[in-house]
Design a protein around this nucleic acid. Sequence first.
DNA 1: AAAAGTGTTAAAAAACTCTTAACACAATCC
DNA 2: GGATTGTGTTAAGAGTTTTTTAACACTTTT
Lengths: 222, 222
Amino acid sequence: MKTILIIEDDKDINEMLQKVLKTNGYNIKSAYSGTEALLLHGKSVDLIILDLMLPGKSGEEIIKDLKNIKNVPVIVTSAINDIDKKLDLFNLGADDYVTKPFNNDELLARIKVHLKHNLNNQDDILKIGDIELNPKTYKVICNDLEINLSKIEFEILKLLMKNENQVVTKSVLFDTVWDTMDSADENTLNVHISKIRNKLKKANPDKDYIETIWSIGYKFKN
Amino acid sequence: MKTILIIEDDKDINEMLQKVLKTNGYNIKSAYSGTEALLLHGKSVDLIILDLMLPGKSGEEIIKDLKNIKNVPVIVTSAINDIDKKLDLFNLGADDYVTKPFNNDELLARIKVHLKHNLNNQDDILKIGDIELNPKTYKVICNDLEINLSKIEFEILKLLMKNENQVVTKSVLFDTVWDTMDSADENTLNVHISKIRNKLKKANPDKDYIETIWSIGYKFKN
DNA sequence: AAAAGTGTTAAAAAACTCTTAACACAATCC
DNA sequence: GGATTGTGTTAAGAGTTTTTTAACACTTTT
């Protein structure tokens, strides 16, 4: 289920949006100001609906800060239809700009468009060779044997498998698996990789799944 | 360079769009009817701008056919601001809907958004002759063979390829690849260049990619 | 022909990684 | 409550790969 962060100071509109989006199957976080939004924005948020409210921080500042935390699609809503403002926001990374009053169904359609593009959050079963990873149940089957991975181990393997045959850089791994800025020690990653390799090797001793790309990262190869 | 397919029956608007998009660095294909568009749409097209008011096939039909050939972002432009029509088109796979008359800069911004999202973003892959370098995945393919470069080798080749047919001075190389002040020995660079040349030669023995510019630097020639 | 710059190779040095073990912490179980 | 189990992080030493250094042959410029 996708999570949408609503940033809207108008209480009626905020609540209306919450209701509409909830009935359409989204998980909701709601904020009534930019500063509040910054606290709520994090790993689980998949898309942001940002109202260009006037009091406090400007929309431009907020969008910058939000994108800094995590780069997800931002749909700006605004009563103002000023072209310069629009262009500013697109430049700062806004993905869409909807003028108020908007039609709810159109907003829903636009949300769909921008979520569709973000393929990083698909929860489908990943099947590569004799490994099967189910992001929903946290189950991993290798060579017909079920293996137990810890949460971090699971996240690492999922990311590697999503990028099959491509290098996943260490910085990407840190950003995705550990959402804090002061990401873990390099060594921590090594240890986890080592543990994953051991568990996979136990299930299938003949294969090497994870390749080290020296000084860059790791690659799940098939 | 990205290629945009313009589908617009109004001659003036079509030509205006061509001009605007060309000056903004896009490659253009232009069609004045749906059937013509279907013939032009293919592998090289990255995004479509589709005007709705076409004689013959309806916009809905055309968008279906286009997506069938190759699923690229479609921005619909239309003089009609009918919500039901809009929703129909979003359902059929439209990625954006811009009402005429539109501001050119806004259209450009929206084009950027939808191209950015395209995961098959081949944009920053450096392709020169039979060499392909992907800065994101750290992959280098030469003459259809994948070659493994170390990190420094990769950075050097990337810089040279970015400045195709231009001399890259040694000081620029040192500043870019080694970010410390006490830049490495001149000889160090020679050794790395030598290693890169060897690996490239192994993949394609017939070509000399890197040219020495005596006492100044190196040049990736094509 | 001399001087300056470059190419290549092998070996030393540095950087990075892997594994094991230890510790702290949290959740679970009797 | 106290013991047990499992997880995440840190540290240390061994192991591996890359990077640099140094030597010498070679090429270009003056």
